[in-house]
Design a protein around this nucleic acid. Structure first.
Lengths: 348, 348
DNA sequence: TTTAGCACTCAGGGATATGGAGTGCTAAAA
DNA sequence: TTTTAGCACTCCATATCCCTGAGTGCTAAA
């Protein structure tokens, strides 16, 4: 059977109506919205065809039709009109992005919350490095005879520091030696490699120094791993409760547990700036009845972040996609504006 | 009317039964649990008295009784038996506390999640400094001509660092001068005072230096404020959905919004190691129908943290109190074990 | 190919029974 | 004076039934 232009029109109306009302839509309502060009009886014939072709579903005889996943897919791919953000919405997004730049992960989590409040669905955010991070520079600052501060700067210009406890006493004059060693042999390599090289120098320097060295390297390796790690932050799960499809507490609980526990399983598509996953297209079972819209944004320094929205299959794809894209662009701009990850001074 | 011992017994049975089942409890059931010493008719007389005295309530004629807030209060104050944790539970708590010590706020949020999973109610956690923090030591490490790293160590031994961008070129030789100035004039004082002193030195040093100085001081002041700030982290809100009293999505949504938005209003009692707030005893309207159990724990360095549990008025006070106390003690131990906030090395 | 008409289906909602848990009260027993 | 058994009464919860209205599928005419 052929998918005529009229069928497509009808499908579009059904999807958009159902997105709005969450109620099955009937032939009469469709006829009304199609400017009276055809009668409801004709629509009914078309609807029957669309059901047969798998684009629509019927909860029971004598109910209206609701879109099937295949119908949503067609809608998203071909029927959906690019929605433009109103000035007010753009404004709102930009306002939400007036984040004081601090720790990267804080920005991420704030961004998630802001996004969630804008699309009013739960969101998840993540930032992942595209290439493995390395340390660009080490520094060790003696504090007292029991401790010193290790400072390291990654090759994405992020700085971390940590107080280290000295297991064995280390002479202050030895510090420059150690720092030299670190900077000459442990920069520009991955955490694993660091640990390997550590073995090589084990018997070439005194034990006290080696202990401190391995502490520092251990800290560095951990930091790198941490920064490269795909931490996922979810927010706004409570928005689910507003939706009629999650008024059932059990369902809501199930999805919320999934969102807060098994974050590794959240969709992380690699291709393109935006992707929409509809119902059963999701791999995770918990998401089989929901749809996910994911957009990616660029952080400087070869990092790439993802920001996703989880909602019912009947979510307003056009609106969410537009807002999310706007948001991702905003984030890219935000991070692009300054290569270094520093703060903006509040006053002075 | 007098509150006889038997009335107290009955009250206790009612509270505990209701906590377990969330259903009004009737005279017959009570008689059964009181080892048959009296008949249900007698119980009924007593129940009527207890209602009159305000300890119990009756949803409607011909229903069983449920505890009134006053009844819970008496139960918590006098009737409740100190519950001892089983070995398995202690074990579970200790296991949950095997947290790798990293950033303090991460520990806090992890602790919250762990606690929530143990008591299966939503929790909130916070850490607040008892006295104002100050910087003990400053350090500035030149990176290149556009940037340098500021490292500062607070008087609670926590170390933070940040890449600073140089607005004006600063000669490398000037760095020690600046560090000296910082360490001699800006240590041991609060953030506000720092900004004041900044004014005083404004015209005594070259502009380039002053700019960097004020950047550093600004960063320090921010960090101190941040650390002293009462950030509240909530977790486990989804647990609410399991409870019959929150099967109504609207109610659940309301409370969850409160938990995630208006964190400042969460109860922060100052007295004693533990406190229980029952229903209307809560100040916030959103908590009028819920109870809160809060325990405090000691972080070293004059810091004090709070960990609270939010649940229905019918929550199992004895169990929650015991677990929460255990948890708070565990946290105190955890922080006490090592004055310095550093990590334990994972390997080597 | 489209439309009007008509019989048919089914979910949702309101009204109406019915069962059962639990009470309050009274009068007798301890 | 306190406790207990007995009994009538209350009221929620559940099930049942019926009805309405929206919506369909089909047929026959335009």
């Amino acid at each position: 059977m052929e998918l005529t232009e009229r069928k497509r029109q009808i499908l579009k109306v059904v999807v958009e109506d159902y997105i709005r009302t969450a109620e099955p839509v009937g032939s009469k309502a469709i006829a009304g919205q199609m400017a009276g060009s055809v009668s409801s009886a004709t629509i009914r014939n078309e609807l029957a065809d669309l059901v047969e072709m798998g684009y629509l579903e019927q909860p029971h005889t004598s109910a209206g039709r609701i879109p099937a996943p295949k119908g949503y897919r067609l809608y998203v791919n071909e029927l959906m009109e690019q929605q433009k953000l109103t000035l007010a919405e753009t404004e709102k997004i930009n306002q939400a992005l007036q984040i004081k730049l601090e720790e990267l992960d804080r920005v991420i989590s704030q961004a998630g919350r802001a996004a969630s409040s804008i699309v009013s669905y739960p969101t998840y955010v993540t930032a992942a490095s595209r290439k493995t991070l390395t340390v660009r520079r080490f520094e060790l600052l003696p504090v007292d005879e029991h401790s010193c501060i290790a400072v390291l700067m990654a090759d994405n210009s992020r700085v971390r520091s940590q107080l280290l406890r000295l297991q064995l006493r280390v002479d202050v004059e030895q510090f420059p030696v150690l720092v030299n060693l670190l900077n000459s042999h442990f920069t520009g390599i991955s955490g694993q490699e660091m640990n390997l090289r550590l073995m090589n120098v084990a018997d070439q320097i005194p034990p006290a120094l080696f202990l401190l060295l391995s502490q520092t390297v251990g800290y560095a390796a951990d930091s790198l791993e941490d920064a490269g790690h795909r931490e996922v932050i979810t927010s706004g799960a409570k928005e689910l409760l507003k939706l009629p499809e999650f008024r059932d507490a059990d369902k809501a609980h199930e999805l919320m547990s999934f969102l807060s526990d098994s974050k590794e399983n959240l969709p992380m598509p690699e291709d393109g700036p935006m992707q929409i996953l509809i119902g059963p297209e999701n791999v995770s079972d918990a998401l089989k009845d929901t749809s996910v819209v994911v957009a990616s944004y660029d952080i400087g320094d070869d990092m790439r972040g993802l920001i996703g929205v989880v909602g019912p299959t009947r979510m307003d794809y056009a609106a969410v996609a537009a807002r999310l894209t706007g948001f991702a662009e905003g984030l890219t701009r935000l991070f692009g504006k300054q290569e270094l990850p520093p703060k903006e001074d509040t006053e002075t």
